[in-house]
Design a protein around this nucleic acid. Structure first.
Lengths: 231, 231
DNA sequence: ACTTTGCATTGATATTTATCACTATATTAG
DNA sequence: CTAATATAGTGATAAATATCAATGCAAAGT
């Protein structure tokens, strides 16, 4: 299913961007009219770094990975996006291009909203502008801490932190299927895939986690937190 | 010299934050009235991560280093701030605390402007809000690229990039005194101070740069760019 | 002048991490 | 079912980087 509008109102969408609460009902109606919707299969690209930020994108279902394209094709996964997460990035107010790429990890339904409309609300509606500022500020802060972690922690610390963030922030459970391959877990934690395997095995041997097929279970969260904190 | 106001108007300050151009003359007057000014000697802390973002800070003269406080007291220098650079950070719209620290590298004169005033203009003046969004977006993007560089490039690439950014973005000249110690150059480029020394020596031997006392001269910028680009 | 202190520099060494080569195990396409 | 392809896993090795232990050097204080 894809196409325009589908007579659904963004104001009643349970997965809407929280900042849409700051829009008037007229603005919401206008927004809903200009909404496009499209489906992506797991593995498909939703948008690529370098493409124009013509639309703000939100997932209404599914999970996607948000990553920077580095040198030699190496990637850094910044975040896993769930419904409610604004996919547009800081390039929107700098050079109107995306600076990260987004790829569906599961099957995904995505809403596309004309960026000019968003920008016009920023100009007309100060609370909406403030909400946008809060959104981008929060994401900036996350990047600060991600950078500190990647630069200063050693591999076991980064791996522990990655597993904790998957459990607490993404899946909300201590037993989860990360969907990410070992390669992608490496892109999330800044290490080669072989080292992901080795460190996870070590964590298993020490009884900190266990794995069953593709499912990871955190057995000793306190220890994992300790490893994450000690770098 | 320190204290309130001093009858100087932020509207005519050549070092004012560019976004102040979006304020009305009344707003500028009000801003100027609520301005505090204070001097810092080289090495003095202007504010620390964790402190409340009660004021937006701008330098009217001098240079300061902006850095993250990492683990084990290790630091990451994000930027060198010159006049015109908003020192407030993304914490302002998240938890009202600073997430980076700022220390004067030279003697500095700093202006403190009540953050509630800034926030009130964001709510009242959409163009000012948009300017704020642009500011924080640009800084976010810089962090993206800084992170990629620190995570994916090897030491010579990071060192080359650091020297180029000092020359082009901070000092605007190929011969400059970085003011930063070797330790601090390491915090800027993500390496131990000993490795800063070794790589700079290597660059000297290859005729890419030369050093005279604390002055660094870039001799072969193209080669430096190549090293930076190749990681 | 003489100590003290901090930074710069150097070489040796240890640690961390990536890479390579390969096997095993799935998973998918025909 | 079987070949083909992708991912997971393993061990050995090489490369990158940090750490340690000295030494020199220069500014600042007494």
């Amino acid at each position: 299913m894809f196409g325009k509008g589908l007579d659904v109102c963004c104001g009643s969408c349970p997965h809407a961007w929280p900042n849409f609460k700051n829009l008037s009902s007229d603005e919401i109606k206008e927004l809903s009219k200009h909404r496009f919707q499209s489906n992506f299969s797991a593995g498909e690209t939703i948008f690529k770094a370098g493409s124009p930020t013509s639309s703000a994108v939100f997932l209404s279902s599914g999970i996607a990975k948000v990553y920077l394209e580095g040198f030699d094709g190496k990637k850094i996964i910044l975040n896993l996006a769930k419904p409610g997460y604004l996919l547009a990035g800081p390039g929107n107010y700098v050079d109107s291009t995306h600076h990260y790429s987004v790829v569906a990890l599961t099957d995904v339904t995505a809403c596309f909203i004309d960026m000019n409309l968003i920008k016009s609300y920023v100009r007309k509606n100060p609370m909406f502008a403030e909400g946008y500022l809060k959104d981008i500020s929060g994401k900036s802060l996350r990047i600060f801490y991600k950078m500190m972690s990647l630069v200063q922690k050693k591999m076991p610390g980064r791996m522990a932190e990655g597993l904790l963030s998957l459990a607490d922030e993404v899946y909300g459970a201590d037993e989860f299927n990360p969907i990410l391959s070992r390669q992608e877990l490496g892109e999330l934690t800044g290490m080669a895939k072989e080292n992901v395997v080795r460190i996870m095995k070590e964590f298993c041997n020490e009884g900190i986690i266990s794995t069953n097929g593709s499912t990871i279970t955190i057995k000793d969260k306190d220890k994992l937190k300790l490893i994450s904190a000690n770098g």
